[in-house]
Structure formats: C-alpha cells, structure tokens
C-alpha cells in the first residue's frame, strides 16, 4: 500500500490497453473467420448443416462469455489439456464472436436482393462464382456498419479475460489498485481509456449506417 499514481502506473495501464487491442484483434480475426463459415453454413442448401449451425449459434448465444472463459481456462486443464490465459481468452472470444458475427453476416447475405441470386444463376455462374463475384461484394457493403458496431462489443468483452488472469486493461487496473487502493480513481481512468477505444468506432459505425441508408434511398429514387 502507499504511494500515488505515477508515470509508471500509467505506462502499465498503457501496456494493458495494448493487450486489450491485441486480444480484440485476435477475437475479430478468429471469430471473423469462424463466423464467416457459420454464416455460410446457416444459408447452406443442406438442411442438416443449417440445423447444426443454428444449434451452435443458439448454444453460444445462450451462454455468458464469462462461463465460456471459465470453461476453457479451468475446464480444459481438468481434462488434461494445459491452456495459458492468452489461449483461453483468445479461444473463448473466437467462439463467442463467431456465433454473433455468423448471425449478423447471415442476415447480410439474406438481405442481398433475391433477384441478384437468381440472375447469377441465370447467367450459369457456378456456386462459388455466384458467391464471390455477385453476392459477397454486395453483402460486404451491407455488413460493414454492423460489423464495426460489433467491434465495440468485442473490445468491451475482452475485459472478461481479466477473470482468467490475462493482464489486459481491466486486469492491469486491478493490479495497480491492489498496490494503491484508490479504486474509484483507477477504475475511472480505465473507463475513460475504454471509452476512448470504443467511442470512435461507435461514431464510425453510426456514420456508415447513415451513409448506407442514404445510398439506398438514392438508389430507390433513381
């Protein structure tokens, strides 16, 4: 105990913030890849694949991320698999993000107008050509604003990695607090840093949404 907040503490927080960003990127990348596969499975022509992927999404969306974290960090070692905090946090986030992004992106695929799918089929494009050259370019445009918005959720949820001992922003705040015991001050600083990370993304997502809306209105007017 003792001492006051100094530059070293702030450096430590900055380091934690970098890990928060790193972990968010891991979640976005891993969850993005898995989520893309989930989205494709959700619109698959095979009924079983659709059902299985829908079941996966329901299971994950019905479980708190915290429990998934505990399950990977404490549960897997009980089965004889050793995991580091980074692995546990990264894997949990990947699973969590994949279910949500998969569901968001499925909606985006489905909101590409039906005639576009039919026209592509009428032009005798193969399944993969139709996807890559016709549907995906349009779906990406629709998907951008909600995906950027979801990145805010990812950043906020990385704070739960602190419970498995991964030293990101929230955990580094706890560590500093253990030595200084000025919880209100420290958690306010932490909150401000999270806000500084998330708010620009929120604004950006909102702006993209507005622009997208306007583009669609112009399209309809034309």
């Amino acid at each position: 105990m003792g001492g006051s907040l100094n530059a070293n503490h702030l450096m430590f927080l900055g380091y934690g913030a970098l890990w928060t960003i790193g972990l968010s990127l891991i979640g976005l990348l891993g969850g993005g890849i898995a989520g893309f596969v989930i989205a494709l499975c959700r619109i698959s022509p095979s009924r079983i694949v659709r059902l299985l992927s829908a079941g996966y999404v329901q299971l994950i969306q019905g479980t708190p991320l915290l429990v998934i974290m505990f399950l990977t960090y404490f549960g897997l070692p009980a089965l004889g698999v050793t995991v580091s905090p980074l692995m546990a946090a990264g894997a949990s986030l990947t699973i969590f993000v994949s279910a949500y992004l998969g569901e968001i992106w499925r909606g985006c695929f489905e909101s590409v107008p039906k005639p576009q799918w039919e026209a592509a089929e009428g032009l005798a494009l193969s399944r993969s050509q139709r996807m890559m050259k016709v549907i995906l370019p349009q779906a990406v445009q629709i998907a951008t604003p909600p995906t950027v918005g979801f990145m805010v959720q990812i950043i906020k949820n990385t704070s739960l990695a602190s419970v498995v001992g991964f030293v990101e922003l929230a955990r580094s705040g706890q560590i500093i607090n253990n030595s200084l015991f000025e919880p209100f001050l420290i958690y306010t600083i932490i909150a401000v840093i999270y806000f500084a990370l998330c708010y620009p993304l929120s604004l950006f997502s909102h702006r993209l949404e507005m622009r997208g809306g306007r583009a669609r209105i112009e399209l309809e007017a034309a």
Binding site: K156, N157, S159, L160, S162, A170, A191
Partner: peptide
Amino acid sequence: EAIRNTPLLVQIFLVYFGLAS
C-alpha cells in the same frame, strides 16, 4: 454513450467502489 462504450465489468467496479468510497 458513456455506458454503451465501456465494459460492464468496469461499471460494476465503479458502482461497487464508488458507493463504498
């Protein structure tokens, strides 16, 4: 905006320690 752009975990700590202080 303040609530939507900060993690729940940090909000809980703030309320917990804020009330205590």
